[in-house]
Amino acid sequence: MTKQVTLAVKELRKTIRGKEIIKGISFELHEGEVFGFLGPNGAGKTTTIRMLVGLIRPTSGTVAICGYDLHRQFTDAIRQIGCIVENPEMYPYLTGWENLEHFARMMPGIGADRIMEVAKLVGLEQRIHDRVGTYSLGMRQRLGIAQALLGKPKVLILDEPTNGLDPAGIREMRAFIRFLAETEGLSVLVSSHLLSEIQLMCDRVAIMAKGRLLAVDTVERLLNQQARVVWKAAPTDRARALLAAETEVLRADEETIVTPYEPSRLAAWNAKLVQAGVSVSEIEPRLPTLEDLFIELTGGETIE
């Protein structure tokens, strides 16, 4: 990877009242990529994100944004970041425009033209002069992104950005995040507890559980490692015996048999079954659920 590193996290730890919540996290974000932060609720995603934007002081470890240390060069470092932490709460008694103006006053060199630009970018220019109290959740989410983009950041951090959006809104949001990374060259960090969502928009993903990063890799590689095939064939016990001779049978019950997914050998296995007189009614490659991934990665530990 020769692309520039925009966010570098080293050995980040947080202890709250003697209990270690975040147990030493390290990862890097590159220019122009969408990085997924995946984990069940309570894994420490939000705490980590809050440490990345300076809301929570880490017990130890460093966060560097475009080369600036977040702790020692706070204003220089934070200037490179735009973020939404949890829900994008705005002042409901102000208009969308006034909200953006309010935050623009806290940043040097951001004027009315930039406010209009981001309002257009998120498609809010029609309603920008209405009170935020009258906005729908989707519009508030978009206004949240608008305020995050206001300072022309290099790194965009979005905590559960599709929470509470309808399916159309989710699709729109995904396309928008891809656009920001590919066209504008931003690094985008997206957290989510939904594998499907991360899978559809991220280049790389980090999987987090119980305050630790279990794996950091590209989405395909992580998923392919764990992909499965579900067979439906009769008689089941015969099919099971035949498949067991070829590969590992991971799970089986009266109707289905689960084996690892090996695309190159799938046709041969099927031919064997058919030749032996087994009637195969269904061969379904199945991507692992998040839960499968966790069980695999944590070695059988359940999700908290």
Partner: peptide, 14 residues
Amino acid sequence: SAGTIKLLLVRPVK
């Protein structure tokens, strides 16, 4: 309580 403090504190202002 409204959560807007988070948006205030992530600005380049001490």
